[in-house]
Amino acid sequence: MQSFSEIDTTSKRASKAAGFAWGVAEEVGKNMRNLEMFGLPGIKNLNLYLKKIKKIPSEKPKKIGKKNKPQSKEFCPIYCGIVFLDNCKNLESLKLIKFFNVSYPLLLLPFLSRASDIIGKKISVKYEKNNFLLNFDKTIFSNNINNNKTISKAKEISIEFLENNNLFSIKEWKELYKLSEETFVEETDTLRAKGAGAGLTDND
């Protein structure tokens, strides 16, 4: 088994060899480490993608808007990811962003995952019947964990910034809170007078 450190170093060097600048290659190294750590086939996808761009270079977006279409055939997932990551604080206000025709879309995920951590919001990603939930770069939930099929191009990727909402109802919360109250001590007059730290008057 390869260590994550080997995965990082080799991915970085391979990306540099494929034509990316060192600083971009560093991002790829870190991302492959993350993808493999999250149990997603980063190396497999990167290997295929780097082979592909030797023959047909893919496109870097000049800026990101609500809908992003490549001028040529396909967007590069690495450049899309970098531009997204660098601009994520501004992009958050767009709420829903779409990319069309992106090569090896899995390679875009770790950038979005890191963006989720930076802005402090979960991000939902959908393409080609695959759904991913990116949780602050701590985990990536996927609906196709056992699917080994590599997707070489996503016709449409939908990226949604999710508001920080509770996943439970107020009723459920109240019930749990009520139970937690059973760890509290009922206050007597004496406890009320002596147990707290404030003085007799709070206006001094």
């Binding site: 600048a21 600083g23 531009v83």
Partner: peptide, 18 residues
């Protein structure tokens, strides 16, 4: 200009910006 915009055209300097 933001560093993000600067980096759009200066990938070769990303490692030293970091």
């Amino acid at each position: 200009e933001t560093v993000a915009n600067f980096l759009l055209n200066n990938d070769d300097l990303r490692h030293v910006v970091r």
